[in-house]
Structures are given as structure tokens and as C-alpha cells.
Design a binder for these strands. Structure first.
Length: 203
DNA sequence: AAATCCTCCAACCGCCACCGG
DNA sequence: GCCGGTGGCGGTTGGAGGATT
């Protein structure tokens, strides 16, 4: 079908956002919300395509964004969630309040991937995990059951598992349990606070 | 001090799913 | 059921800044 281009190339600005553009976008969303991203830049007087505005808002300007370095706990969470969910960054981000899929994706590619690949190779020798943050004993705390539920849901949602999904499940089976209590506690404790921040979605 | 290489991350691109007419 | 518009997602890129030579 004759798909409309994501944005008209003519006259629309690309590249890094200026402070002024940020201010305009924030002010407009605070005042009107974002019922329609395509119309938003026109209404706000921004020379950007709607997609660009949405991305800027979601990844950078949202008030509930948690900026700054990822904590060790968050990194472990990402690694673990990636084992279960694969490259479903938005799903992973949903479990890390205040973090965006883009940010998580970046962290994964720049830091965590390097850490995980060697670990996977080491996984053949079980003893290697005994002294790291990885713990062989299963965690029975409630928060982790949420994660287990997520996995179950994921598998259920993909009854017709493709090769990729099978690989995910497989790799999870082969991956030693993380002692989640140390990060899930903090994470879920946090999420209750964040929930209120999410409570009033602008649109 | 200059040149080169490397890392990181904001932003773009293309595709897909969903929804309403 | 089809079509077009829109939102959302994941992969990729480009450039800035830091590290190294």
C-alpha cells in the first residue's frame, strides 16, 4: 500500500535538539498532551516530524525519566530480562521504571553484551559462577515470581514459537539463576514510587 | 601537540501492528 | 475485508568527546 512517508522531508529539521526546541515541546505537551504526534509539531510550531518529537519526549524529556548511570542492580536486571525476553527492549524497559527502551538498548550494546557473552561461554563450567553476583541457588522471593509469570506469559503468547523464541527459552534454561533478591527488592520498591509518577500519563 | 582510534549515546530509519472509516 | 493513518518497536548510524599512540 502506498505508505505515507514518516515525515515530509521538506523543511523539517533533523539532528540534535536545541534547548529552545525542548522547551517548546515540553510546554506544548504539558499544556495539550500528545493526542496526535503527527499534528503536534505543526501545532507547537516545531520544524520536526512527529516521530522525532515522540522520540525526544519518550527518551529524554519525560518527567519520569531517570537519568544517570545504571546501577549494578539495574544492569543485572537487564541481563536477566534479556535472557528471558530477548531483544524486546520495550518489554525490558517496562520492568525498569524510569528507563527507556532506547537507553537500555544502548547500555546493552555498549556494556552488558560484552559481559554476558564471556559469561555464557563460562556457563559450561558451573563452578565459575559461585563467586560472582550470579548465584546458583534459586530465588523464591515474590518479586521473582512476577518475572517467572512474565516468562510464562511470554511463552504462552508465543505458542507458535519461532526459532528465535525457542532459543531464548533454551538459553534461559541453560543460564544459571541470578539471586534476584538483591536487585528485585530495590527495583520493586522503586516501582511503587514510580508508579505514581506514571500515574498521570499526559495523554 | 597532533593524529588516530575507540566508545558512547541521541537520533534516525524502516517495518509492523493496530485501529477506525 | 480493505485501506490509510498512526503509534510503537528494534536495528542502525553519525558525531561528539575521550583515550591512546
Amino acid at each position: 500500500m502506498g505508505r505515507a512517508p514518516c515525515c515530509e522531508k521538506l523543511g523539517l529539521k533533523k539532528g540534535p535538539w536545541t534547548d529552545e526546541e525542548d522547551r517548546i515541546l515540553i510546554a506544548h505537551i504539558q499544556k495539550h498532551g500528545h493526542p496526535n504526534w503527527r499534528q503536534l509539531p505543526k501545532q507547537a510550531g516545531l520544524l520536526r516530524c512527529g516521530k522525532s518529537c515522540r522520540l525526544r519526549w519518550i527518551n529524554y524529556l519525560r518527567p519520569d525519566i531517570k537519568r544517570g548511570n545504571f546501577t549494578k542492580e539495574e544492569e543485572e536486571a537487564i541481563i536477566h530480562l534479556h535472557e528471558t525476553l530477548g531483544n524486546r527492549w520495550s518489554a525490558i524497559a517496562a520492568r525498569l521504571p524510569g528507563r527507556t527502551d532506547n537507553e537500555i538498548k544502548n547500555v546493552w550494546h555498549t556494556h552488558l553484551k560484552k559481559r554476558v557473552v564471556p559469561k555464557r561461554n563460562q556457563a559450561k563450567t558451573v563452578t565459575q559462577f559461585s563467586e560472582s553476583t550470579m548465584s546458583p541457588q534459586p530465588c523464591s522471593s515474590d518479586p521473582s515470581s512476577v518475572l517467572t509469570e512474565e516468562i510464562a506469559n511470554h511463552q504462552h503468547h508465543h505458542q507458535g514459537l519461532d526459532v528465535k523464541d525457542e532459543h531464548i527459552v533454551d538459553s534461559f534454561d541453560n543460564f544459571p539463576e541470578i539471586d534476584e533478591s538483591f536487585w528485585t527488592d530495590a527495583l520493586f520498591e522503586n516501582s511503587s514510587n514510580i508508579t505514581s509518577a506514571f500515574g498521570g500519563p499526559i495523554s
